[in-house]
Write a protein that binds this DNA or RNA. Structure first.
Length: 770
DNA sequence: TCGTAACGGGG
DNA sequence: GGGTACGTTACGA
């Protein structure tokens, strides 16, 4: 039994060689494939034989062949061009494109190793659950007193490590007497810390390394420090060094044959929570609040003579890596399954957006059905797609404003996929010549063929059928382990199925189809409307509805309401097409609805779900963030709008009184470029300029902590770096009008409070007047 | 009203 | 590496 962990290609002599990295029952093996050649297709302007003759005169062409492919649903003769080496393809592609006899080239932008995987029958991560992979997580602590950690100046003081076989380490180069931590390993220097980490990964035969935001923080940092301290970061199974890659605007830390997976982007894709800090994700997944250390305390605890403080730091470091490991072990099975399903290595798959996953699946399916893959849109095509007038999207009803109790949330999980399948929504079935005009016409006015099976509905149908098989096997099987795996598998397929609609409307998609996307939403509006009508017929009040979800309530006790809601659910589901299901999503004790897409709900545990009102960003001051939370608590827990208004009024007074500590008013903004590069200079940049005149230094990447003061003309002009501002010297008007009020006003406005009233101006207006 | 810049995660 | 995110919000002009 073996599982493919990774693949890439290298050049041997002048030939490309695919390498396949396996974990086997005996250890590891690397297989190579030398006979796979880069190829692409060209469509002839008129005659494919003329094109063939012209292409054969070009350099770097190894072979040409006329083949029959499906293009826009029609059988078409195209020229298959095999080249000598992947790196020759970009130039050859342009040469072919420039030939008068060629109309266009296709599939010339699919990376070589990816192409190999798509064409081969190899399934990555196969048997991953049975070969018992060794999975380790890593986390670093760095020493920096202010601003962003800078690898040029700030050393790594600890690397922590935990693997799924129970081995735990924190490496550091400083210690105190009497710590008594068996996992702490004290070495001589930072270089030695890095070296021990690298050694351990290979000694413990680690197959997969994970981290939290490690693509953008830990690994680039370790990499730079390893260069500085002269340690080779040879983490690859072939001894290669870790390599930082650009992937779009993000980084990817690539380790040959030993996939590195950053679980932060995975958590973002899989979970739906307001913030994705390690502690938030951990708490959400395991219900445990993780101990945390403030960043500012790290250098303090490190420098401290106090054994307890140093110990806290070591324990924090270990807890970070252990929680990262736990999260990884929970999230990886889904990624493994996605990797198997779309047949791309886990390193790639785990970093793909949902559109990229869909696209990879479609390219593979197109290949096996001899369908020519459409090109990605050019710059102009993208602009014209993006510039088109927005089509009518999902159905969003204006909510019934105010506070409601006992709210039941229902949602259509497979609304769009089932529309695509049941109405055969596909770019190639659009406006066919063979079907009657009104037979299968969307409310958006587009007709889809009912005779010819569309490619994408077909692929999606297979995905859904496969998912149903997993789900029914789950019911039959008793073995818990197998059941869990089946659940992961059906979930992976659900994710893919639910991405298909978004893919049609994604302007960078190869199979972009605006008519398809707008037809899907049009049919969707019809169905959600129906669900709302049914709920009302059953005596429910519909508070709010958006796309595929409805929030409903009625008078009475919780249990009774839920019972009635389930009854309504049964009725509507009987009416809907088979693959469509209205699911029970949750129960909330109270909620406040403000406008479309803006509301807050509180569940039975008192946990807040906030939509469209978040101020949890670092460019909001602490006072604004805190006050918003207090206001929502007053409204949803205490059900006391006047109390909420009083809280705001009190904070307004405190701000105006000048007594709010600067720390609560500090705004943090990153200086993302060097000074000369700014076209418009925001407040933080002008604050930097002033501070530089006083001798302070700043550089690209620094987080600027500033205060809005009273000195200056514009908002930008009044900003000052916090260190140069005296307590009390702040612009109260700014903090009230641009921070506090925006954070709470939308909420309280919906309950009838005026802005003036909250600011302690204007007349009092009671709820009764509204 | 529009264009530009910044947000996220990590220390 | 046969590659170059994303959706949303705030500020300044």
């Amino acid at each position: 039994m073996k599982t493919l962990l990774d693949s890439d290609y290298i050049t041997v002599g002048d030939k490309a060689q695919i390498r396949l990295f396996y974990k086997t029952s005996k250890g590891r093996s690397i297989e190579t494939v030398s006979d796979f050649k880069p190829y692409f297709y060209a469509l002839a302007e008129e005659d494919v034989e003329t094109l063939k003759g012209d292409v054969e005169n070009l350099s770097q062409v190894e072979e040409t062949k006329v083949v029959e492919m499906l293009w826009k649903g029609r059988k078409t003769n195209v020229l298959k061009i095999v080249s000598t080496h992947p790196k020759e393809v970009p130039k050859l592609r342009e040469d072919v494109r420039n030939l008068e006899s060629s109309l266009n080239v296709f599939e010339a932008d699919i990376p070589f190793a990816r192409r190999f995987m798509l064409d081969s029958k190899i399934t990555p991560m196969e048997h991953a659950e049975d070969v018992e992979l060794n999975i380790a997580s890593v986390d670093i602590e760095v020493y920096n007193k202010r601003g962003e950690p800078n690898p040029n100046r700030n050393p790594i003081i600890m690397i922590s490590y935990a693997d799924n076989k129970g081995f735990e380490r924190v490496w550091t180069f400083k210690t105190h007497e009497g710590l008594g931590l068996d996992y702490l390993e004290v070495v001589d220097s930072e270089a030695e810390v890095i070296r021990r980490f690298v050694e351990t990964v290979s000694e413990r035969k680690i197959d997969i390394i994970t981290g939290y935001n490690s693509d953008n923080f830990d690994f680039p940092y370790i990499k730079e420090r390893s260069v500085k301290t002269g340690v080779k970061l040879c983490l690859g199974v072939d001894g290669r060094e870790l390599k930082m890659e650009r992937r779009g605007m993000n980084n990817g830390a690539r380790i040959t044959g030993r996939p590195h997976i950053d679980v932060y982007p995975i958590a973002r894709k899989v979970l739906n929570i307001p913030r994705y800090r390690l502690e938030d994700v951990y708490e959400h997944m395991f219900g445990i609040v993780k101990p945390d250390v403030n960043y500012e305390d790290i250098p303090i605890f490190w420098d401290s003579k106090d054994v307890g403080e140093f110990k806290t730091l070591v324990e924090y470091s270990l807890s970070d890596v252990k929680t990262t490991l736990e999260i990884s072990l929970e999230l990886l099975p889904l990624e493994f399954e996605l990797s198997r399903f779309i047949r791309q290595p886990i390193y790639e798959t785990s970093r793909m957006s949902s559109s990229q996953r869909v696209e990879n699946l479609l390219i593979r399916k197109a290949h096996s059905r001899n369908i020519l893959v459409p090109n990605r849109p050019s710059g102009e095509q993208y602009d014209s797609r993006a510039g088109e007038e927005k089509f009518e999207g999902a159905f969003v009803v204006e909510p019934k404003r105010g506070i409601h109790d006992n709210i039941v949330l229902f949602d259509f999980r497979s609304l769009y996929p089932s529309i695509i399948i049941s109405h055969n929504v596909d770019p190639d079935t659009l406006e066919c010549d063979c079907c009657p005009e009104e037979e299968n016409k969307s409310p958006a006015g587009h007709k889809f063929c009912t005779k010819v099976d569309g490619f994408i509905p077909h692929v999606l149908g297979d995905v859904i059928k496969k998912r149903m098989q997993f789900k029914s096997r789950m019911k039959e099987i008793g073995d818990e382990r197998e059941k869990r795996l089946l659940n992961v598998q059906q979930n992976a397929l659900k994710l893919i199925a639910n991405s298909m609609y978004g893919y049609y409307g994604f302007e960078r998609a190869r199979w972009y189809c605006r008519e398809c996307a707008e037809s899907i939403t049009a049919w969707g509006r019809e169905y959600i409307h129906k669900a709302m009508e049914f709920a009302e017929k059953d005596g429910f009040e519909v508070i709010y509805g958006d796309t595929d979800s409805v929030y409903i309530t009625k008078a009475g006790e919780k249990d009774e309401i839920i019972k009635d809601a389930k009854k309504f659910q049964g009725k509507i589901n009987k009416e809907l097409p088979e693959a469509m299901d209205l699911e029970f999503e949750g129960f909330y004790t109270s909620g406040i609805f403000i406008t479309k897409k803006r509301y807050a709900l509180m569940d039975e545990q008192g946990k807040l779900t906030i939509k469209g009102l978040e101020t949890r960003r670092r460019d909001w001051c602490r006072t604004a963030k805190e006050t918003q939370k207090q206001v929502l608590d007053a409204l949803l827990k205490d059900k006391d709008p006047d109390k909420a208004a009083e809280i705001v009024k009190k904070v307004v007074e405190e701000i105006k009184g000048g007594g709010v500590p600067l720390a609560d008013l500090a705004i943090n903004t990153q200086m993302t470029r060097s000074l000369g590069e700014y076209v418009n200079e925001g407040p933080h940049i002008q604050a930097v300029r002033k501070a530089m005149k006083k001798g302070r230094e700043f550089k690209q990447g620094d987080i600027i902590t500033y205060i809005q003061t009273r000195k200056g003309s514009s908002i930008s002009d009044r900003a000052r770096i916090i260190d140069f501002v005296d307590e009390g010297d702040y612009d109260a008007e700014y903090y009230v009008n641009n921070q506090l009020i925006p954070a709470v006003f939308r909420i309280l406005e919906s309950l009838g409070y005026s802005e003036d009233e909250l600011k302690g101006l204007g007349k009092q207006m009671s709820l009764g007047d509204f």
